[in-house]
Nucleic acid binder design. Structure first.
Lengths: 208, 208
DNA sequence: AAGGCACAGTAACATTTATCACATTGGGTT
DNA sequence: AACCCAATGTGATAAATGTTACTGTGCCTT
């Protein structure tokens, strides 16, 4: 069996948990799956119970500008925001670690706002924290140069995976910051010289 | 007297309008006033009934990175989002045209979500449209070079003021795009040569 | 072992953007 | 008119970032 929903979403009331269990559908997806595309209509609100999803903004040239990760206990703010009017998505969502998600039909998402206080608070808090996160991203691109943005990027990834060894290629970082691999390689080398990281093949060890 | 609230917020139910009129406080502020600062605690939700407010992100060096405008019939999404927990603001709000605002205490903002469907819909739509707008801003800085960003900036201002003659200095644009005046002057000149704008002192005429 | 391949390092050069230094312009003030 | 001053124009140069082209390196496959 799966981990009970109550453990993953401890703030949900028991009634809400029951409502979810009897109305929502579960779905598993493998790493690499694209769960949502720009321009696609949104039909469900998505809660994550396992794995990791990358939310990014797609560039015309194939850039995958990194916004944030969704992890267990979290929900896709975009899918909630678009709920009421069944709007189009403005972002891409790609599975980066095999996930299990709970899909909630938009009509219920809306209805529960009135019926379950714990759902209302969860939704509002999801909005708030993601808006804040996106504002920080704006900051980083608006005011910082690439070396600082790289440090910010690494820090966020460290926080998200709760480890100090990131398994990403330079190319991947470059794509997510919309720059080129060479630039990232150069900057990482400089960071290594400053003693901030240790570089290994397919792995970046964060020292500070 | 003022324009009735019902005209400015036509979707609000009559009960909601009454509730606002008997609970909220009005406030007028002159151009130049800073209504909200980064780090400041938010005590009210703000509805705009007259004038224009600029929402921006402040840089360490005094940059005023432009996010969007608030205009009559709109509300500050940040002040709503932070409502439930009385969080700190992450943005700056400056009056650019003398405004009248309606201030709604956070407790009511929250309470009305359950009581007034039209309030609920207004709040959700405010979130949605601002989130979308911020995502477009991210796009513009993440994927575009300065000339395209300038065009995007001018377009947004044209849409906001519903006119084709913008009364802004090059310096002001530079501050809001976090670049330098010289760069903006040069790019505007190029745009003039391409026939996109006509440059006058303290005024930019948008031709296309 | 040999070859293929993704990943990484690096030099050289191009382009974009930022900065500095100074000239010009036009409106308002005295 | 003479002056002041903010706004704008422009060249020269510096710095950051992007691009091209190639080398090296470790791992996997055959």
């Amino acid at each position: 069996m799966q981990t009970p929903l109550k453990n993953i979403f401890p703030n949900f009331s028991n009634e809400l948990i029951s409502a979810i269990e009897s109305n929502a559908t579960m779905q598993d997806s493998e790493a690499g799956t694209i769960l949502m595309r720009t321009g696609q209509y949104i039909k469900n609100t998505v809660l994550i119970t396992k794995g990791k999803i990358k939310i990014y903004r797609e560039g015309e040239d194939g850039g995958e500008f990194f916004m944030y990760y969704l992890q267990p206990g979290q929900a896709c703010a975009i899918s909630m925001i678009c709920a009421t009017k069944s709007e189009k998505s403005q972002i891409m969502a790609k599975v980066v670690e095999d996930v299990s998600v709970v899909m909630i039909p938009l009509t219920l998402m809306d209805k529960w706002m009135m019926e379950h206080r714990s759902w209302y608070e969860f939704v509002i808090e999801t909005y708030r924290s993601r808006f804040e996160e996106v504002l920080e991203v704006v900051d980083s691109i608006a005011f910082r140069s690439m070396d600082e943005r790289l440090e910010f990027y690494l820090k966020r990834h460290k926080d998200a995976c709760e480890c100090t060894e990131l398994k990403v290629s330079h190319q991947e970082i470059a794509t997510e910051l919309n720059t080129s691999r060479e630039v990232i390689s150069r900057l990482l080398k400089k960071m290594e010289q400053r003693g901030l990281v240790k570089l290994n093949r397919n792995q970046i060890e964060l020292l500070k």
